[in-house]
Design a protein around this nucleic acid. Structure first.
Lengths: 130, 130
DNA sequence: TCTTGACCTTCCAGTCACTGGAAACATTAT
DNA sequence: ATAATGTTTCCAGTGACTGGAAGGTCAAGA
């Protein structure tokens, strides 16, 4: 398979696939003409990577997930540990965003949003009061 | 004031303050020795920026907020519009993270996390089923 | 056969908001 | 005089791509 077919079937842009090769996540063969030549296993890996990325795993976590996936002797505990760590990252981000949301939403509700210059949003940013 | 005092009082690292000058958010004066010389108004702006950034506004949004803040003839509607746009960004991010969390949390709960290799997390990544 | 167009390659630069570090000059303390 | 600290500029790196340029390859049609 050439790259565009793999892109189509994996749902990843060609650019991203080349990037994944660059960072060592995949290692497709090459045809005589220099084109990348993808096997089914490459496609499978790319689909795996696409799903892992869509769950927010970093490239480095994806690398480790892929290694675990290919290790027949893995312990599921190792996978779970990795996933739990990522879950904590997600929870931290959600908490941070939720706190931003809370503050900002309050300010927005306090703002008349009319033609006058008085604005509690700017006042809060200026004075530090929430 | 020299940069380290401003850093201390604004809570922003010196590096960040220099960066904010680079991108045109502030324009402190200079002493004869070439050191930046910050006035109270610079400090005030930096504190404003720090709070805006902590609410997740981008640098560009901060620039616009600062411009509105300094415009006596502003309409609070413009500030509110900006803040509401940002609130929508936040909501999108929260929704995305929450969906990740939902899926991943389910997988984690399905995984035994023991010494055996069978792992629903990897299986899901491999096969695409959630 | 030639040409057009689609495909592929590599390499470089840009994104965002910093952050780290090097080299050199200024100031302050001992 | 020396050492320690503070400041300057500039360059490079972060993560995970993304866009674009310059050029090689291939299949189809006139």
């Amino acid at each position: 398979m050439n790259i565009s077919e793999v892109a189509e079937r994996s749902g990843l842009p060609s650019k991203t696939i080349r990037y994944y090769e660059d960072v060592g996540l995949i290692a497709p063969g090459r045809s005589a003409n220099g084109y990348r030549s993808f096997a089914e296993t490459d496609l499978h890996k790319l689909a795996f990577l696409g799903r892992a990325r869509s769950l927010g795993f970093t490239i480095d976590e994806c690398r480790r997930l892929l290694a675990l996936y290919e290790d027949r002797g893995r312990a599921s505990a190792d996978v779970k540990k990795l996933a739990e760590g990522h879950l904590e990252d997600i929870d931290r981000k959600i908490a941070e965003l939720t706190e931003m949301r809370r503050t900002l939403s309050h300010l927005v509700h306090c703002c008349a949003g009319d033609g006058r210059p008085d604005c509690p949003i700017l006042e809060s940013l200026a004075k530090g009061a929430v």
